[in-house]
């Protein structure tokens, strides 16, 4: 099983002829992702790594079965590209691009919601159903199939934790990057609900950070879950009022603090790791 994407997911890459698009198309193919096409306006008819390039998403959809699209499109043009994919009927949209204006993000998420498209991101590393399909940018070698679901707000920190899990013999069902921006397509709860139903997933790791109230909202659902949850929250040492890189990672007016999140998660029955490398041991204790 796994969630959202699997070995049968047919993927297109929007922006496939750009630097990042090209590099990560190679990496995704190496991981085993079924990439069926790329889109790059004005470059239709070319090939990248043997993958046909189309001028528009509509053209790609006319020629291929397309289940998902990943965007390697600069921020000023991302909304247009996302609207194109959503209206063309693509059901899973992974938006890697960072620095998309928040009003564009609200527009994208709203349209996706109406059209029934799942949006992963923006400002995400993507999503990996380990051993089956990777859509996005994480390094291949750390993602190995197994029973742990991972859901996170941030990218590299997730690699850190997934790397630790894999090094300790704990593979993953699916690893989902929600994205670091204030407005993103999926919430922790959306993903936790899917992990709860997924037969492959036996335990879930939640990687959160200071700011906002996503972890507190997740706690309300964790209380109802049958599967165990281990969490790590980044930003314990962050001073209030300073935005720590991500749009949402800021402690404002005493809200979104580390302690508040940890207390909410613990009260819901989740185990909280102090440092990232403790996560595998906590999982191991639970799964014994």
């Amino acid at each position: 099983m796994a969630i959202i994407i699997n070995e049968k997911t047919n993927v297109i890459v929007q922006g496939i002829t750009g630097n990042q698009g090209r590099f990560h198309t190679c990496q995704m193919l190496a991981y085993g992702t079924k990439i069926v096409g790329g889109v790059s306006p004005g470059k239709g008819g070319q090939e990248v790594e043997g993958i046909p390039v189309y001028d528009t998403v509509y053209e790609a959809v006319d020629n291929q079965q397309v289940d998902a699209s990943v965007l390697f499109i600069p921020a000023p043009f991302a909304k247009d590209a996302a609207f194109e994919a959503i209206t063309a009927g693509v059901k899973v949209l992974v938006i890697v691009t960072e620095h998309i204006p928040v009003h564009d993000e609200m527009d994208i998420v709203e349209l996706a919601c109406r059209k029934g498209t799942t949006v992963v991101g923006p400002n995400t590393f993507g999503i990996v159903s380990s051993g089956k399909c990777k859509i996005g940018i994480p390094p291949n070698q750390f993602f190995v199939e197994g029973p742990i679901g991972v859901v996170a707000r941030s990218g590299t920190l997730t690699y850190e934790i997934v790397g630790n899990l894999t090094a300790n013999g704990l593979g993953q069902s699916t690893v989902v990057g929600l994205g670091g921006d204030r407005v993103v397509g999926l919430s922790f709860v959306d993903v936790l609900e899917k992990f709860e139903k997924d037969p492959q997933t036996r335990a879930v790791v939640l990687v959160g950070e200071i700011g906002g109230n996503a972890e507190e909202e997740a706690s309300l659902y964790i209380k109802k879950m049958t599967k165990p949850v281990v969490a790590y929250i980044a930003g314990k040492s962050a001073p209030p009022g300073k935005r720590m890189g991500h749009a949402g990672a800021i402690i404002e007016r005493g809200k979104g603090t580390f302690n508040g999140k940890v207390e909410a998660l613990q009260a819901a029955g989740a185990k909280v790791a102090t440092l990232p490398f403790e996560v595998p041991e906590l999982i191991r204790q639970i799964l014994k």
């Binding site: 590299t156 670091g180 990687v207 790590y232 962050a238 440092l275």
Partner: peptide, 28 residues
């Protein structure tokens, strides 16, 4: 690299009794 990793780095330094001079996310 990455905001979460940067925060995680600060937290880890603080855990061992260090005092970070800055937060710097070198980005992707």
């Amino acid at each position: 690299n990455g905001a979460g990793m940067s925060m995680g780095s600060l937290d880890t330094l603080a855990y061992y009794g260090g005092k970070p001079a800055n937060f710097l996310d070198a980005g992707g």
